[in-house]
Design a protein around this nucleic acid. Sequence first.
DNA 1: AAATTCTACGCAAACGTTCCCAAAGTCTTT
DNA 2: AAAGACTTTGGGAACGTTTGCGTAGAATTT
Lengths: 347, 347
Amino acid sequence: MKFEATTIKDIAKALNLSTSTVSRALKDSHEISKETKDRVQACAREMHYKPNPLAIGLKSRKTRSIGVIVSEIANPFFSQIIDGIESIAYNKGYNIVIAQTRESYQRELADLQFLASRSIDGLLVSVSIETNDFSHFRQFQNKGLPTVFFDRTATEVDTHAVMLDNAKGTYDATQHLIAMGYKNIAAICSAPFLTTMQDRLAGYRKALQENSVAERSDNILYCTHAGTEEEEIKTGLEKMLTDKKTPDALLCLSDKITTGCLRVLKAKGIKVPDEMGLVGFLNNDLASLMNPPLTVIRQPAFEMGKAAIELLLQLIDSKRPVVEFEKRMLLPELIVRESSRKKPEAK
Amino acid sequence: MKFEATTIKDIAKALNLSTSTVSRALKDSHEISKETKDRVQACAREMHYKPNPLAIGLKSRKTRSIGVIVSEIANPFFSQIIDGIESIAYNKGYNIVIAQTRESYQRELADLQFLASRSIDGLLVSVSIETNDFSHFRQFQNKGLPTVFFDRTATEVDTHAVMLDNAKGTYDATQHLIAMGYKNIAAICSAPFLTTMQDRLAGYRKALQENSVAERSDNILYCTHAGTEEEEIKTGLEKMLTDKKTPDALLCLSDKITTGCLRVLKAKGIKVPDEMGLVGFLNNDLASLMNPPLTVIRQPAFEMGKAAIELLLQLIDSKRPVVEFEKRMLLPELIVRESSRKKPEAK
DNA sequence: AAATTCTACGCAAACGTTCCCAAAGTCTTT
DNA sequence: AAAGACTTTGGGAACGTTTGCGTAGAATTT
């Protein structure tokens, strides 16, 4: 029952040739006669010969597979990115090996070890929320593992990266909210370590400043668990709402925060947008069908995945060590819907 | 710059031993003295030795990686399944290699070739919508590739499978709609080849029969592209709606159909549930936040992924050829919300 | 003291490729 | 006609492991 694949040796034996000749004939080498090539190739087809990638990998030290580390596969944002990665990988004959950290630094460490020991040709990673030390990536990169970061990047590691223009995303959204008449906009963040969060906050602040709105520190809420714990959002929000100066709009700085906030508001019977405006990051096609239809900052996730693997392949294929690294910046899209409807002039 | 990993040979040289001794010491063989083992293991740790999986794979014909073929990575239902698969794979030291078909039979063929030639230890697959010939899977299975189907199974291939009790899902949903006062329930399907669709239709029919509701053939709409083409749903639905006997509720037999229908209804200004009840398959956490909150048939996707890989590992680990195959049936969950609210007694 | 068994290790083949180096044959050049 | 240059093929090492078999020496048995 055990299946024995046909090898180059089998072909050699069948045709009374040496393995080297067969190997060369198979790759259409110029130093093999047309006649022999034809015979070999015909025989290979007939015997359903498939090269053994392990043997090739062992010999060439290339595996034509790349590792991908994300925090959560089931998060639509990340699965859209993986979709983009796969679409390029498939065309280039690479396959992708996936690992998820579930936002744990320890898991990230383990995943990296695991993948790297599996001899991948390159690595694509979006760091976990817990991670604030990036030396493990630097270490593997120095050992010769081509690495590209996407979405959440590691500042301390010098390599290609693809990210959103996060500041622009929140800047546009905040400008929009202000234009719609919202006066007191709270920003709900996840973990402060993430460069994405820092940039998003910066965009928010810039827009406030440009409109001469004073920033209020109690208008910034950190939910360190990235909304994994809805409880965290709930208590944070409750505190904010019982405050004297309750915000009139929420700017949610990540996908999970956005849906988490909406859930909490709904549970507390707070009407969006009548009692509270809402804009947030969200990469879910269902945003337009929600109640209310959500104004979202949408990331070009698919394109981000494509860009990341393109940069990685470029790194892998480059003959000489790459020293100039590219930070590719993608533009967010503000999709305006009901949840940030113009405020009726409050008396 | 090129990184050279330390090998067993390096350790052997450093300690003046043979590679066989090192190899055996590393795996704690009884025929190596305690003393030597300690020395070898210490040295291995010190030199950061990592076994080369390609070499091991070449020797053992095992790679500790399994292939996964789904139609769309970015579909939340599938990414939840992949999440489940990964969670088990990680613990067992397997990694997962992912390919997507985008519902194309040709891609499925190519993906299978691609993955199988990559020497995976086993395969997990949910067939594409276009597929109605399963011989390619049978062929690889016969060659010794352990295969397990999930969600969309291949009837003609004799192996383990994990699926939803699809008939129960639609049966429960239809019963529910009838109980809520809906009299004329249309079923919106995707491709008729899929066993899932056939089973779902059967559940719908069974419920109709048990309630002595005559089935009307013009109440069944096939959207062969699985809602990839929203246009298809739209024209199909329009035809249905201009009919004399317009349905008063829609039963959507797949995730994409569900959201597609809702989108079309919304565009046409048809109010759900007041003018049209709606129940459908949907594995998206946002269903409760939608307008209206959707009554959905939810599949235990994460568990499905776990079950699938458990069965696969069982197949891989079994010493003797497995002849008894298990069809594991998971239960759907009907989550009742607003979109199937009780009908006010018409006139 | 010889024969036997153990213990602890080394040798070398094998997994399926690739590729450097020869070598045999043909063809061209002087 | 001899020398060189191609053309086409084969031999065999190497990639990093594992593993069957062999063996030297020690320990045990007769």
